[in-house]
Amino acid sequence: MAYSEKLLDHYDNPRNIGSFDKNDGGVGTGLVGAPACGDVMKLQIKVGADGRIADAKFKTFGCGSAIASSSLATEWVKGKTLEEAEKIKNTEIAQHLSLPPVKIHCSVLAEDAIKAAIKDFRTKQGSKDKAAE
């Protein structure tokens, strides 16, 4: 399968590999996919005091397209507010990496991972707010 240069670059030089402490209150963790399906993505965001995503990390078990999609997702969410990050569409990821049709689900998974990380962060914030009341 012929992959685009952008995709190969993300596979060869993935951005933001790694993990944050998932128990850190400022961190949101999204874990999506399933080992039996051949792809699992863990995407984490660290939200700053200004409400913007200050940093992001990922780890992915999957094919080259899955690795590249999640690598790109961490790049794109950085500096965005949660509302902005939520608007990232899988189609934009697929288009940017020129994913072949059979690999579109990799970009869907990356979008899901962003949403799951934001949701996790908000849930943590919600419980913290409640505790403060």
Partner: peptide, 24 residues
């Protein structure tokens, strides 16, 4: 493996089968 969340879990002693994965 350094990039794999499953490897990370295995190293932390988490049983991958114990997680409720959303099959897609």
């Amino acid at each position: 493996r350094e990039m794999s969340p499953l490897w990370e879990m295995a190293q932390e002693g988490i049983d991958i089968k114990s997680i409720e994965w959303a099959e897609h």
